[in-house]
Design a protein around this nucleic acid. Structure first.
Length: 171
DNA sequence: TAGGCCATCTGGTCCT
DNA sequence: AGGACCAGATGGCCTA
């Protein structure tokens, strides 16, 4: 072992034992200081990260609250939970899109059969910003949260059915 | 008291 | 390197 060799060499050289011990103690203290510093550094980074995470979640919750405010829930209803809010929003958007589609269909029945062509993605939905294709779901309407018969004849009814109740069916 | 919901902390991973 | 995002763990609060 080189260390042993070195120490015995030092002894052989006549270095006093006391000096060696002092050196060892100093090294120990220095290492302890470094570790403490590292620990506080890690700690302060963690605290900062926690702070950011808390902030991030607050922003997420604020967005969720904003979403709750625009959803048509009766004010006396208990506040929707997070998962309920998301499901409700999904169904609400679906119902709105469906309403729009049916309204279009009534106004211009001749134009009705317009299955999305493979190239239709880009050219869709000049009608309304709420049209299905502009909801980020691609060329087709969001998949139905229930059977399509449910709102085939009464869009308003459908809206109520799908959006009036929290926990409306979501796939 | 069990179960649901929520806020917070934490370590890992990815991105800039 | 530091920040954003994510998922798991934990503990508190509330309600049936």
């Amino acid at each position: 072992m080189p260390a042993e060799a070195a120490s015995s060499a030092a002894e052989a050289a006549g270095a006093p034992r006391e000096q060696q011990q002092q050196r060892r103690r100093r090294r120990g203290r220095a290492r302890a200081r470094t570790e403490a510093l590292l620990h506080t550094l890690k700690r302060s980074r963690r605290v900062k990260a926690n702070d950011r995470e808390r902030n991030r979640m607050h922003h997420l919750n604020a967005a969720l609250d904003a979403l709750r405010r625009v959803l048509p829930t009766p004010p006396e209803d208990a506040r929707l939970t997070k998962i309920e809010t998301l499901r409700f929003a999904y169904n609400y958007i679906w119902a709105l899109a469906e309403t729009l589609r049916l309204a279009e269909q009534r106004r211009a029945p001749a134009l009705r059969p317009a299955p999305p062509s493979p190239h239709s993605d880009s050219g869709l939905s000049s009608a309304s910003p709420c049209a299905p294709s502009s909801l980020g779901a691609g060329a087709s309407a969001p998949s139905s949260p229930a059977t399509s018969e449910d709102c085939a004849y009464a869009p308003a009814e459908a809206l109520r059915a799908f959006c009036g109740l929290p926990g409306a069916p979501l796939r």
